[in-house]
Design a protein around this nucleic acid. Structure first.
Lengths: 142, 142, 142, 142
DNA sequence: GTGGTCTAGACCACC
DNA sequence: GTGGTCTAGACCACG
């Protein structure tokens, strides 16, 4: 069995050291997981308090992220029953569409690699390694 | 001939929309270009005013970035001659060392790709394309 | 001369007794005043702190309203220089379009009047009186 | 014949999307209908369960509204017979008195119309249309 | 139990 | 000076 606490930890990977605000990290992660299909329409999100205690952050920070996601129709509020993943009209089944969402981060890597004068092969093999590691994690986790 | 204005544009790629503070973007970019060898010890940096007008940002922001770079011994202030790239004792000739600096960005791509459920091949080929494009730009630009 | 404090009081008419949250009242009022033409693209909004002290509410409440307005592209944030009315692509010059925005409130009046069994003439003459009073205020104020 | 389910739908016009709490919407609507004479002393109210299922809301919400109405002597609890409209000592036969209860909503329309820069005639004709539509509904319904 | 609102106060980033 | 973020804690509305 998976507790709600684990659910919160599973959904959110927060890095407090980043300049990216916590609430924004949460918003982006939920968006991507909805688009990626890990979070399906109707899935219940862990409650504000659960997430807050699991991640050791303030409930209002979580609430802010949830509110923004609700305002953009990614989540729906069920009165007194928490937040649920909304049914998005737009579907991004096509991997190519989802790839477009990754592009800004890839271009960031591109400029950084260029400035560091790194050969393309080195960068690609390093990324390949990271991606395979992720797959491995996912598989063993199942 | 290349004006200083062009130089400023060449060195700094600022995105005002990002949550990443402008001054930090500038600091990181100079650091990487020194490590990568685009900026060599003794090279003159464009003046605060030139950078500010070229990029349309506040001179104090540029000044802050320069001050931080000076405090970390990446730049040296030459009286009457503006800022100059310092001679760093530590060298990162090894590409592997410089690759380590790129690693955080690569891991960010990794987690985003995983959340978007994107296949590794698609991500790698897209990045490969971006890296080659950059090389091409550099070549034709020369 | 008009102080910024007066500006804040002029733009925002907050009723703390209402069930409508303060920040939402503010959002709606700014939206209507942009649509109505009282607030023009480029106009500077009073600062968060000014509004907060003028209305006697918490700065974060004002900030929340401003953030929501920014998220919906009604306001634009000028770094370090406060918020400014955005240039909306959509124009609602037509009074008929703006009337549509008033419709929910009118229908509320309709159901309430029906439940109170009030004759249409009485309701209309009362509203007419209120509207003329407003015009009068505006004229004498000029 | 009119079922109790229809009765519930007839008495209560609930908008779940509103910021106005559901129970308060219910309280206000019952009050207005008693003052307006649609609900007469001795009339039986539909049961909590009937209202809840008819409107698709939580029974506790209905119960809360009824309790508040009872506390304010608008309804009386008859053992085994549910809630019944009370005999109010105060009477608001005069339309002018009941009009006063509508005034807050009318003033809200006034401020919104002013902010939207709408001409009085347009607002009045739109409201007139709505009021006539209501009358028409009532007549044909009978 | 759920989320929402508001307050008070601290600290940061940017101009 | 500007707005932004986060925390801590109280209270409300709803189920």
């Amino acid at each position: 069995m998976i507790s709600n606490r684990d659910l919160a930890v599973d959904i959110f990977q927060i890095s407090t050291g980043s300049t990216e605000p916590i609430y924004r990290q949460m918003v982006e992660q939920v968006r991507r997981q909805i688009l990626g299909g890990q979070l399906l329409a109707g899935d219940a999100m862990p409650s504000v308090r659960e997430v807050a205690t699991a991640l050791g952050i303030n409930p209002m920070t979580v609430s802010k992220a949830y509110s923004l996601l609700e305002a953009d129709d990614w989540l729906v509020r069920r009165r007194g029953m928490g937040m649920v993943v909304a049914e998005k009209t737009l579907s991004l089944d096509e991997a190519s569409s989802r790839l477009a969402l990754l592009r800004p981060s890839l271009e960031r890597v591109g400029t950084e690699a260029k400035q560091l004068q790194l050969p393309a092969e080195a960068v690609l093999s390093c990324l390949s390694e990271i991606l395979n590691q992720n797959d491995h994690d996912t598989n063993t986790q199942k």
